[in-house]
């Protein structure tokens, strides 16, 4: 096991270096001049332009810039935003809880609905129920989520007035961000109605972000269940006359969960991609929206730093999933 982990970690470190080179060189290739953007329609004199470029280190040879950057990363310094002049790491951690909270809710939504739906579809295979669940899942899987979000806002918020339009909590509530998770903070604050408000703000973004993972998990659960249900030991258990619920609940489901867990792990990348769109639509103050804004503002430092942090996060999650998988299923360890 130890060698397995060390091997994975070594590969990861190598990949991370590759990621840093890519992120760094990408950003240098971006057209447009972030320094000139500082003055907008107003024209900047060439002398000032040169002076500011010098301050930002843009006049150094590219190799020197890269190693300066790498040195910074090792010290936890991912650069400073050109626009807001704040450290990228600081901004990232200010915004990350919002994205994390939304992602966790979306995954929970997907798992809690997707696994039962997949199990039912598998048990009632071929029935109308199965067909409608799988049909719905395929629609979810094919959904352009940015449109889905607009549609939900139009229906649920604008027409029915059931949920608020955007943001994380009603502005009436005001309390210190202890954990950064609005659901928890609103409870800690003890202000009545705060938790309810936070929940109502979360509903639509959760549905939108959770739709594709929900569809994927439902489909995956169904096929995993079907596979397990046809295995000999389940048939034996059935033949022995064990109650069907027991067979499904204990024997089949547990074994079917192995591929499903991997699928859930793989959804992390999907989530972050989805967060870009979901947060843009719902004005959710998280990483996704920050990135889109930064790309349009040519904020080199932010795009570069955020690409790195996000890639590192995804690699860590994948590693964790691999290890988890190795624990559940010892066969693949070697």
């Amino acid at each position: 096991m130890f060698r397995f982990i060390m091997g994975r970690v070594a590969v990861m470190a190598l990949t991370f270096v590759g990621v840093s080179i890519i992120a760094f060189s990408f950003i240098r290739m971006l057209p447009g001049d972030p320094v000139a953007l500082l003055s907008g329609e107003r024209v900047m004199s060439p002398e000032r332009h040169a002076a500011i470029s010098r301050d930002l280190g843009f006049d150094q040879p590219i190799i020197v810039q890269y190693f300066d950057y790498l040195r910074g990363i090792l010290h936890g310094d991912f650069g400073t935003s050109i626009v807001t002049k704040q450290p990228v790491v600081e901004q990232f951690f200010n915004l990350f809880p919002a994205t994390l909270e939304l992602s966790i809710c979306a995954i929970l939504f997907a798992v809690l609905l997707g696994i039962p739906a997949g199990v039912f579809a598998a048990i009632k295979r071929g029935s109308f129920l199965d067909q409608s669940i799988m049909g719905t899942a395929l629609i979810g899987f094919s959904m352009p989520i940015f449109w889905w979000g607009l549609l939900l806002i139009m229906l649920v918020s604008n027409t029915l007035h059931w949920t608020p339009v955007s943001g994380r909590i009603s502005l009436m509530f005001f309390f210190p961000p202890v954990t950064g998770f609005m659901l928890i903070d609103s409870l800690i604050s003890g202000q009545s109605g705060a938790f309810k408000s936070a929940v109502s703000h979360l509903i639509l973004p959760t549905i939108v972000l959770g739709t594709i993972p929900l569809a994927v998990i439902a489909r995956q659960t169904r096929s995993a269940m079907l596979e397990v249900l046809s295995e000999d030991y389940v048939r034996t258990a059935r033949a022995k006359g064990l109650a069907p619920l027991r067979v499904i609940g204990i024997h089949a489901l547990r074994n079917a969960m192995i591929p499903v867990v991997t699928t859930i792990g793989l959804q992390v990348g999907v989530m972050l991609a989805g967060a870009i769109l979901t947060e843009t639509i719902f004005s959710w103050p998280g990483i996704g929206k920050w990135l889109v804004d930064s790309v349009s503002r040519r904020d080199y430092a932010v795009i570069q730093g955020a690409l790195l942090i996000i890639a590192a996060t995804i690699m860590l999650v994948n590693l964790a999933v691999d290890l988890l998988y190795g624990l559940i299923n010892p066969r693949i360890r070697h």
Binding site: F16, L30, V295, L307, I314
Partner: peptide, 24 residues
């Protein structure tokens, strides 16, 4: 394969977004 790992380390839409900003 390491190069592919590097590409896979980014969320696809995010990478495509940055790439398209570079290409135009």
């Amino acid at each position: 394969m390491r190069l592919m790992d590097v590409i896979l380390a980014f969320p696809s839409l995010l990478l495509a977004l940055v790439l398209v900003a570079i290409i135009g």
